[in-house]
Design a protein around this nucleic acid. Structure first.
Length: 655
DNA sequence: ACTTGGGCGCTTAATGGCGG
DNA sequence: CCGCCATTAAGCGCCCAAGT
């Protein structure tokens, strides 16, 4: 490899710092200059983050809203409203307002301007102040000065705070300290969204933006704590003094050295970022293995020479196979799936509760357990195949064969009635809701698709025999919520009673229950049918989530996007409109449309709408296809029910 | 009378799957 | 980014027996 990168004008920001905590490789690659030059050599990198490459290649390129990730759309939205929140909150104090977010002076000039305000002014609110220390540039979301006392707030479009949020704001605090500010006497707060917020419809005639403003002081909350994971009740947890003070991150054992010897650490980062090629790597490092979730992960593996075929990183679908554990396995030399053969794949606790013969059975090595009749019968009878998913997963990969519990699947398929309604909701969630009575990040349904099988014993998804497709998509962004439900209620009864089915029913059930709870003051009987759907909905995901059918192709996943193509590889995304092809694009289109409120309703929207209609039928059609294939598959077998109900007789000679 | 430690069951934390 | 769900790991109080 004789390829050298010359790095000029590197950008050192708080993200450089935060990324470096995850690992030097990751930090190096997330530098724009480094990335761009590396991408010229490694084609994979271009494909992995197409928009990033496109943006960096052509700096003058105007990225349209359609190309912005939804997190950016929400981030900008929350940023805008947080300013109104602070202006509103300190209205009575008559503070001076400085907003540098739209200034085009260049960073150095902003630093000077910020410095002047910080020195001379008293009683002000400053948005997007600029500071620099030792080459590291930061922009502070909000700085408030009240009678000489400073307060720094970091605004996040989230409803809880984790360790990396604490690191984020405390890095800024450290830079301010190095600039000579006495941060020990500053108030440091994380400003987050209040998930109890509701866009109450107090006055009928208020426009949406007026309504948000009306509820504004309840939209945000400030606090100074972070948690290892999200508490069920954040408010209660804070009141009880749970969690950790963000200030204390300086004394956290993992970060103590960094913040105590800050200058030295910054130098280490600078040296790393200036390296002329990708840092060589043969093991995973960092304080955690979170960076394994990065979009660049497939590239990491390839660069480290890790083979795709039997890598332990293929194992997923189980919190036990978390990135940290897999990374640690790799570091101690367990790199391939066959090397985990001897590891205890079931927890001690689970093993203790098993019958002795099963325990012995699982100890056997070099034994094709997935084909063993006794094991299959044991799982068919005991409904606990999910407990053995690691074993199923590992052996399926090693033998490259499917694992099937016919009896379980047959039982599941027999529950379905003659007429089957396969339904799917398309929803959009926004950090700050634009639909009346909605709360932060609440999923708003704007589109549904229903495939109806008129006779479960006589249909075909390819010819369309006995298959009906119904769909609905909001026509404009005004008050579509009620229309959605009245149309859905009507369509779900159109061909009489039947089974109601969705994939991962929990999601659809939540959407329905949100609506039912919201309108309970209205006549109950009007919603009795929705309640019936809520209670009776079957889950097409069940055979896969419970490992009754497992293919090595699944790699631990049972998402419809993995299971669908396994059964019907001939249905593909190829025919779909380019505008809704990529991942979550459909939801993004709707989100833009909702956020823009009334301004976006034009011809462009109508084109997008047509594309969205085309896409929506895909998932429900897949459900019909999966149902049909599963039925055909099971029909091949002759069932020996005598065997299935007989005593499990373990052949001791095999143990 | 007091301390210590193992075993037990219950609760809570941590992780990652699913949908969007 | 959200909520919800499942599994596993860790923490806690409790009992009881053995030791000091």
């Amino acid at each position: 490899m004789n390829f050298n990168f010359k790095n000029e004008n590197q950008s050192l920001t708080k993200y450089t710092f935060l990324n470096y905590l995850k690992g030097d490789f990751f930090a190096w690659l997330t530098d724009d200059n480094n990335y761009l030059k590396a991408a010229q050599q490694y084609e994979d990198l271009k494909k992995l983050s197409y928009y990033r490459y496109k943006r960096l290649k052509n700096k003058n390129l105007n990225i349209s809203e359609f190309e912005l990730p939804t997190t950016i759309i929400d981030g900008n939205d929350v940023s805008d409203w947080s300013k109104k929140y602070y202006i509103n909150k300190y209205q009575k104090d008559n503070f001076k307002i400085y907003d540098f977010s739209l200034e085009e002076l260049g960073f150095d000039n902003l630093v000077k301007k910020t410095f002047e305000i910080m020195q001379k002014e008293k009683n002000f609110i400053l948005f997007e102040g600029a500071f620099v220390y030792n080459g590291f540039k930061i922009r502070t979301d909000v700085i408030i000065n009240k009678n000489g006392k400073f307060k720094l707030c970091e605004v996040k479009a989230i409803t809880n705070c984790l360790e990396y949020h604490a690191l984020d704001i405390m890095f800024q605090a450290k830079i301010l300290q190095k600039n000579g500010y006495d941060i020990d006497n500053w108030i440091l707060k994380l400003t987050i969204l209040n998930n109890n917020f509701k866009l109450f419809q107090n006055k009928e005639d208020l426009q949406i933006n007026e309504l948000i403003e009306f509820n504004l002081l309840n939209l945000f909350q400030e606090h100074d704590r972070y948690f290892n994971s999200k508490p069920k009740d954040l408010k209660k947890a804070i009141e009880e003094g749970k969690g950790f003070l963000i200030r204390e991150i300086f004394n956290h054992q993992d970060y103590f050295e960094i913040f105590n010897d800050f200058d030295n650490f910054l130098e280490k980062i600078k040296i790393n970022q200036k390296k002329d090629k990708l840092p060589k790597k043969d093991h995973f490092e960092g304080r955690n293995f979170n960076y394994l979730d990065s979009e660049y992960f497939p590239f990491f593996l390839k660069y480290m020479g890790i083979s795709d075929e039997k890598s332990i990183f293929l194992l997923g679908g189980d919190s036990w196979f978390n990135n940290k554990r897999k990374g640690n396995f790799f570091n101690i030399g367990i790199k391939n799936i066959d090397q985990i053969e001897n590891l205890q794949l079931i927890s001690n606790l689970s093993t203790q509760k098993l019958e002795e013969n099963i325990k012995n059975f699982l100890k056997v090595k070099d034994f094709n357990i997935l084909k063993n009749k006794n094991f299959i019968n044991f799982l068919n009878k005991n409904n606990n195949s999910k407990k053995f998913k690691r074993i199923i997963q590992k052996n399926a990969i090693l033998s490259n064969e499917n694992f099937i519990l016919n009896y379980k699947i047959l039982n599941h398929l027999q529950i379905y009635k003659k007429v089957i309604y396969m339904y799917d909701f398309e929803t959009v969630s926004q950090a700050i809701p634009r639909v009346k009575n909605m709360s932060t990040y609440e999923q708003v349904p704007y589109q549904y698709s229903i495939h109806i099988i008129l006779d479960k014993d006589d249909f075909d998804f390819k010819s369309g025999k006995n298959i009906i497709h119904l769909e609905w998509l909001a026509k404009d962004n005004k008050d579509f919520y009620e229309d959605f439900w009245s149309n859905f209620t009507k369509d779900m009864q159109k061909y009489g009673p039947g089974s109601y089915v969705s994939y991962n029913k929990q999601f659809e059930k939540t959407i329905i229950s949100n609506y039912i709870n919201r309108v309970e003051y209205k006549k109950k009987d009007k919603f009795s049918f929705l309640l019936k759907i809520y209670e009776e909905t079957l889950d097409m995901m069940e055979p896969f989530a419970n490992y009754w059918y497992y293919s090595p192709d699944f790699l631990g996943s049972y998402s419809i996007k993995v299971v669908g193509p396994h059964f019907v590889p001939d249905i593909s995304y190829k025919d779909l409109d380019i505008r809704v092809q990529k991942g979550d694009q459909s939801a993004k289109q709707a989100k833009i449309w909702l956020i823009q409120n009334n301004s976006y309703y034009d011809d462009n929207w109508l084109n997008v709408r047509n594309a969205m209609l085309k896409y929506c039928c895909y998932d429900t059609l897949l459900m019909v296809a999966i149902f049909q294939r599963l039925k055909e598959f099971i029909a091949q077998y002759n069932y020996d029910f005598e065997l299935l109900i007989s005593e499990i007789n373990f052949a001791t000679k095999n143990i």
